[in-house]
């Protein structure tokens, strides 16, 4: 097997607050292979954005990476000096944020934002960078790119702006793109196109994607593997098809709406009762235990680690004993 493009090992992000230290994400372990699309799902507040920000080194102080490592092609990047990390952002890891309406500087022409980013990372003349910028806008599907490039962000629609954002994230050909809910703020009618453009461009360039979304449909169509997050931890991670068909973690199963409850019609899909706990009130043992339909005594005492009971699939749940590991 080839070396992973990105490896996250035991990543833990903490926020010191007046009421003690809050752990926003804990013990995140994941690998992304070159060119792979890893989906990431979970309720709001599960720590998806925090994981992405930690990888790219943009945790807002006073938040900090308390433990763990982030490795890019085997090289540790979580402890780099600020300027070296800056050189990696945009160049080797690109990022796409949720809201294209606020991601672009309103006072800068699209051309200036693109050229500035390209020239920050690549030794190109202004003209060459501009040419490349126009090519990129073409690639992301902006009609009449050569003419539109000198427009300001407000002259584009939301969908078109997100295309510009994708062009900006890809303009120095990064190996990995972190897309944090790239279509959540967009009109439903353009969401599929944006995902398609992003996926296609990354595929052409061999770039891997960490795709954060809460749309399981998008994950099913786009991702190779999926990581399910709950209360700051990974609940389950595995190939998309397997996870959708045979969810191992009760939370994943609930997300897929596939757990029949006693006394209920078997083909009626159920919601998971209750809500995800706040960071300050994560229960002892398994964070999911108050909501889990299959909770056991042990779940209320010990926290399950992320184990690999079946090759290629990892899950943090006491239902799958360690002995079952491959």
């Amino acid at each position: 097997m080839t070396e992973p493009l990105l490896s996250v090992r035991g990543l833990t992000v903490e926020f010191p607050t007046r009421h003690g230290i809050l752990t926003a994400v804990e013990d995140i372990d994941l690998d992304i292979m070159p060119g792979e699309v890893l989906g990431m799902v979970g309720e709001s507040g599960a720590g998806k954005s925090m994981t992405g920000n930690a990888i790219i080194g943009l945790i807002e102080p006073p938040g900090r990476i308390a433990r763990g490592e982030v490795l890019l092609k085997g090289q540790r990047i979580d402890n780099l000096p600020p300027d070296e990390m800056r050189a990696i952002r945009g160049r080797r890891i690109g990022m796409i944020f949720q809201d294209p309406l606020t991601s672009l500087n309103p006072l800068y022409r699209i051309s200036d934002q693109l050229v500035e980013t390209i020239r920050t990372h690549l030794p190109l003349s202004r003209d060459a960078a501009l040419k490349r910028a126009i090519g990129l806008l073409d690639d992301v599907g902006i009609p009449d790119a050569a003419r539109r490039i000198d427009d300001y962000p407000h002259q584009f629609s939301g969908g078109m702006r997100q295309r510009v954002v994708i062009a900006l994230a890809l303009c120095a050909e990064p190996d990995l793109v972190i897309a944090d809910e790239p279509t959540t703020a967009l009109d439903v009618s353009v969401q599929a196109q944006i995902i398609e453009v992003m996926k296609q461009l990354c595929a052409e360039r061999g770039a891997a994607i960490l795709l954060v979304t809460h749309d399981m449909g998008v994950i099913a169509e786009t991702a190779d593997r999926v990581a399910v997050m709950y209360a700051g931890r990974i609940a389950e991670i595995g190939p998309v098809r397997d996870v959708i068909k045979h969810a191992m973690h009760p939370y994943t199963a609930g997300l897929m709406g596939a757990i029949p409850r006693l006394g209920e019609n078997l083909d009626r899909l159920s919601q998971i009762p209750g809500a995800m706990p706040r960071l300050s009130a994560i229960p002892q043992g398994c964070a999911f235990n108050p909501r889990c339909p299959r909770v056991m005594d042990r779940c209320r005492v010990d926290r399950p680690g992320l184990l690999e009971p079946v090759p290629g699939r990892r899950v943090a749940c006491w239902l799958y004993p360690e002995e079952a590991q491959a």
Binding site: I56, L58, P82, R86, A87, I88, R89, G90, R91, G94, M95, F97, D99, T102, S103, L104, N105, P106, L107, Y108, E116, T117, T120, H121, V165, L168, A169, A172
Partner: peptide, 25 residues
Amino acid sequence: TEYIRFARARGLTQRAINFGHALKN
């Protein structure tokens, strides 16, 4: 703002962000 965060995420220099993007706005 988000566009400053996005500028950081694109790896622009501190200088370009502070004295270009942020100051202009």
